[in-house]
Design a protein around this nucleic acid. Structure first.
Lengths: 217, 217
DNA sequence: TTGATAATGTACTAACCAGTACGTGTCAAT
DNA sequence: ATTGACACGTACTGGTTAGTACATTATCAA
C-alpha cells in the first residue's frame, strides 16, 4: 500500500534559511546570553533543523558572532541618514541626541547583545574584522557639530567628541540595559511614555547645558 | 603498615567556609554570568568541596542570589556615610557625583553582576526580600540637595530626584559596564587615569550645568 | 539527461554539568 | 565518654547539550 501522507517536496532557499536562523538566534541570544541560549531551542523555533545551523555557522559561537555582526551592521546603516549640516549647532545636537535615544529605545535586542558582549570582554567583537572596522561616523558627525559650535562661539572649547558621544550614549543605553534592576529598585516602569518624554528632554537639556556652559576650573 | 601520610585533621569553620564560597562565586558569576559560571569550577577554587555549596546555598541559583545580595548589601553600607548637609548645593552635588563615579570604578564586579541581573530581567532581585526593600538613601540625599538648591534659587525647579540619579548613575555605570565594547570600537582604554579624571570632571560639569540652567521650552 | 554540488533531515554521541547518595569527621553539651 | 547535631568529603548519576555521521533531496550547469 502506498503512503497515504504525501511528503511535501522540500524547497531549497538558502537565503531564507540563513535569515530565519539569524533572526531566531538574535532573539535567543539576546534573551538568554551566549551561554544561556540553547542551540536546540534555536533550532526548534526555526523552520529548519539544527544541522543547518552548523552547516551555515559552524558553531554556537559562530552563530553568536553572526548575530552580533548583523546587529552592528544595522546600526551602521542607520547612522548615516541624518541631515544636520544646515541646522544651528545646538539644534543639530538635540536632533542627534533624540535619534540616539530613540534608537536604543527601539532596539532593546541590540542593547542586550552589547551588554552580553561586554560580559565576555568584547572578545568576539575583537575577533570580528567586520565590527573591528567600525569607525563610527557618529563621532565625525559630533565633531563637526562641536566645531561649528565653537566657531560660532556658543560651545565651550575643551570637549572631546568621543567623550561627548559617551555621555549621550551612556544615558540612552542605560535606560534600556538597566531597565529591570533600576525599575525594580525605584518602582518605576522605564518604558512608560511619560518617562520616555521626560528622559528624552532631560538628556538633551543636560548635554546642551554642558556644551554651552563655561568650563569650571 | 600504617599510613605514611598523616591526614591533617579537618577544621570546622562554617563562617569561613561560607565566606570563601561566596567570594569565589562572586568572581565566577561576575566573570561568566549565571549560566556561564560552573559550580564545579567554583568548588575547585574553593578550600572546600561542591558538596558544601549545596549544603549552604541549596542550588546554583541560590548561590547566585546570595552573591547578588551580598553585593547590594555592600553598596547600601557605603551609601550612608557622606556628609553633605553643610556644603552648598552645587558642591554637595559634585561630591555626590564623585562618590558615585568612584564607586562604580572601584567595583567592576558589582557593575557586572547588575548587568547580568538585567539580562535575567532582574528576576532574582525581585524574588529577594532583602534587595527588594532597598529604598535607596541616595535618592533622599539627592532630594535634599535639590531642595536646598531650589530654595537658594540656584537650581531649576522641575527636576525629579530619581531622574537625576539615573542621569548620574548611567554615565558612571556605562563607563564600567561597556568598557570593553566601547573601548574596542573607539580604541580607548577606559581605565586610563587621564580619561578617568576627564570623565569624572565631565559628568560633574554636565550635571551641574543641567541643574543650574533654565528649562528649555 | 546527467552528474556535481549545495542544501537538508534524522539519529546519534561524547562530554559536560547540576545535583545527590552515602558515609565520615568535628565539637559542644551533657 | 557518649551522643546528637552540624560540617564536610568522595564518588556517583541522570539529564542536558554542543556537535557529528550518514543518508537523502534539490538545483543547476553542461
Amino acid at each position: 500500500m502506498a503512503k497515504l501522507v504525501e511528503r511535501e517536496s522540500r524547497k531549497n532557499d538558502p537565503q531564507k534559511t540563513k535569515e530565519d536562523i539569524l533572526n531566531i538566534a538574535t532573539e535567543e541570544f539576546s534573551a538568554f546570553g551566549l551561554s544561556g541560549a540553547r542551540v536546540d531551542a534555536i533550532a526548534e523555533k526555526t523552520r529548519t533543523s539544527k544541522r543547518m545551523i552548523y552547516y551555515y555557522f559552524g558553531s554556537k559561537e559562530g552563530l553568536y558572532l553572526a548575530v552580533l555582526e548583523k546587529a552592528y551592521r544595522k546600526i551602521r546603516s542607520l547612522e548615516a541618514d541624518l541631515e544636520l549640516a544646515d541646522l544651528p549647532p545646538v539644534e543639530a545636537l538635540r536632533t542627534l541626541i533624540a535619534s540616539t535615544f530613540d534608537h536604543d529605545e527601539k532596539n532593546p535586542d541590540f542593547v542586550r547583545l552589547v551588554s552580553i558582549e561586554n560580559i565576555h570582554h568584547a572578545s568576539h567583537m575583537k575577533r570580528s574584522s567586520e565590527i573591528g572596522e567600525l569607525n563610527l561616523s557618529i563621532v565625525r558627525t559630533i565633531d563637526e557639530i562641536l566645531d561649528r559650535g565653537r566657531r560660532e562661539g556658543v560651545f565651550r572649547r575643551d570637549i572631546d567628541a568621543i567623550d561627548l558621544h559617551m555621555l549621550i550614549s551612556a544615558f540612552c543605553f542605560f535606560r534600556v540595559s538597566n531597565r529591570y534592576t533600576f525599575g525594580t529598585i525605584f518602582h518605576r516602569e522605564l518604558s512608560e511614555p511619560d518617562l520616555y518624554n521626560r528622559h528624552k528632554q532631560m538628556i538633551a537639556d543636560a548635554v546642551t547645558a554642558y556644551v554651552t556652559c563655561q568650563p569650571k576650573l
